[in-house]
Simulated scan of single mutants.
Amino acid sequence: MAESKYYVVKQKAVPEVLLKVVEAKRLLESGKARTVHDAAAQVGISRSSFYKYQDDIFPFHDDARGRTVTVLLQMEDVPGLLASVLRRVAESRVNVLTIHQTIPVNGVAMLTLSIEVLPGAEDVSAMLDKIEHLDGVHDLKILARE
């Protein structure tokens, strides 16, 4: 089997230096820092760390537009929870391609949701965060990005 070139990981699993590189890039893009030196100093990393990782890390939403994202949710079988999940999806203006929910076992169901991230869609990572924090959602995993 061929090795993957890209991985999707949650923020808590990413080393601090990489998160600081993302923040430095945001400062440069927003104009809050004029130079790499300024941005690196503001976030507390060296310029060499910035240059070493700048092309290797980016927020999930920066690369999601025009793609299909499939997520797996483990959620309680309670009335209205699926509707709340789909409401978050609709609010983000992404297109639902497929949806499959298993029959609940011990009050917990698995939901597989494939969405198409259209131009003009809102930040997908923010949408996933909102879904993950709904009462009754136990876990959310990104299965695939195409």
Score class of each variant (00 low, 15 high):
His37Cys: 00
Arg47Cys: 12
His138Cys: 00
Ile115Val: 15
Asn95Thr: 11
Lys5Tyr: 08
Gly31Arg: 01
Val94Asn: 03
Leu81Ser: 07
Glu76Gln: 13
Ile57His: 08
Arg47Met: 07
Phe58Val: 09
Pro79Thr: 08
Glu122Lys: 12
Ser4Met: 07
His37Gln: 12
Ala33Ile: 14
Ile115Asp: 08
Gln11Asn: 05
His133Ile: 00
Thr112Arg: 14
Met110Phe: 12
Thr102Ala: 05
Leu72Pro: 00
Leu27Ile: 11
Glu91Cys: 01
Met127Phe: 09
Gly107Met: 00
Ile115Ser: 05
His100Gly: 14
Leu86Thr: 14
Glu116Ala: 11
Pro104Arg: 12
Ala13Ser: 09
Lys32Asn: 09
Ser114Pro: 07
Lys10Gln: 15
Asp77Lys: 07
Tyr7Leu: 14
Val137Phe: 05
Gly136Met: 04
Val124Glu: 09
Asp62His: 13
Val22Thr: 14
Val94Gln: 03
Leu86Ser: 05
Ser84Val: 00
Asn106Gly: 08
Gln54Leu: 01
Arg47Asp: 12
Arg47Val: 11
Leu28Ser: 03
Leu111Ile: 09
Thr98Arg: 13
Leu72Ser: 09
Leu86Phe: 10
Lys12Tyr: 11
Leu143Arg: 13
Val36Gly: 01
Val96His: 08
Met110Thr: 14
Ile131Ala: 02
Thr68Phe: 15
Pro119Val: 03
Leu97Gln: 15
Ile131Phe: 06
Asp123Leu: 04
Gln101Lys: 06
Arg145Asn: 05
Glu146Gly: 15
Tyr7Asn: 07
Val94Glu: 02
Val78His: 00
Leu143His: 03
Ala41Pro: 00
Ser30Gly: 14
Asn95Arg: 08
Ala83Phe: 05
Glu3Ser: 12
Lys130Met: 08
Leu134Thr: 01
Ser30Ala: 15
Ile142Leu: 15
Asn95Phe: 12
Ala40Cys: 11
Gln74His: 04
Ser92Ile: 00
Arg34Ala: 09
Ser46Pro: 01
Asp123Phe: 01
Thr98Cys: 02
Asp62Lys: 14
Ala126Met: 15
Pro59Leu: 14
Leu18Met: 15
Arg67Ile: 03
Glu76Arg: 14
Leu140Met: 04
Gly136Pro: 06
Glu132Ile: 02
Pro59Met: 08
Asp55Lys: 11
Gly107Cys: 04
Thr68Val: 15
Ala90Gly: 12
Ile99Phe: 11
Pro59His: 09
Pro79Ala: 11
Thr112Ile: 07
Val89Glu: 08
Thr68Tyr: 13
Asp77Ser: 08
Asp129Trp: 10
Glu146Val: 13
Met75Asp: 01
Asp135Cys: 03
Leu143Trp: 01
Ala2Glu: 13
Val17Gln: 02
Phe50Lys: 06
Lys10Asn: 15
Ser4Gly: 05
Asp135Ile: 09
Leu28Asp: 02
Ser4Phe: 09
Pro15Val: 02
